[in-house]
């Protein structure tokens, strides 16, 4: 059933965030250190394992696909709640620092990307 798919992602989110908060507390900084990353890793490991052993039913997968499909609309809503006025009025330093760091980082992408020995597939 579709709800199983939602439940699987919920399970991964809770376990991943638990690890994230645990690391945060251990290091003495408040918050969730990489919890979403851990959750994604758990989902990938889990789904790759299940795939080899028959895989989830079509309807269970649909539950996960529903969430993925909502992803872009959620990003649009997220863009709508940013403090864009503050970004524009933070003074030139915010613009220069944010802008140079962003564009500089982007041009480092192909340089470090070369470290990958072979091209990966989508």
């Amino acid at each position: 059933m579709e709800i199983y798919g939602l439940g699987i992602v919920a399970f991964c989110m809770y376990v991943g965030s638990f690890i994230g908060y645990f690391i945060g507390k251990t290091l003495g900084i408040s918050g969730n250190v990489g919890g979403v990353g851990f959750a994604m890793l758990i989902l990938i490991l889990l789904s790759n394992y299940v795939e080899k052993n028959g895989g989830w039913s079509e309807r269970t997968k649909n539950g996960i696909y529903l969430l993925s499909a909502l992803y872009i609309p959620i990003v649009v809503a997220m863009a709508g709640i940013q403090n864009v006025v503050a970004a524009f009025s933070g003074g030139s330093i915010a613009f220069v620092a944010g802008g140079v760091a962003t564009i500089g980082s982007m041009f480092l992408v192909p340089v470090i990307g070369k470290l990958g020995s072979e091209k990966t597939e989508k």
Partner: peptide
């Protein structure tokens, strides 16, 4: 809808289908 709860929930779901080898 655009808050961190839904955002993280949806981001995690996108990991489904990612290949371990990649």
């Amino acid at each position: 809808l655009g808050g961190s709860m839904f955002r993280d929930f949806a981001i995690i779901s996108t990991a489904f289908g990612a290949k371990l080898e990649n």
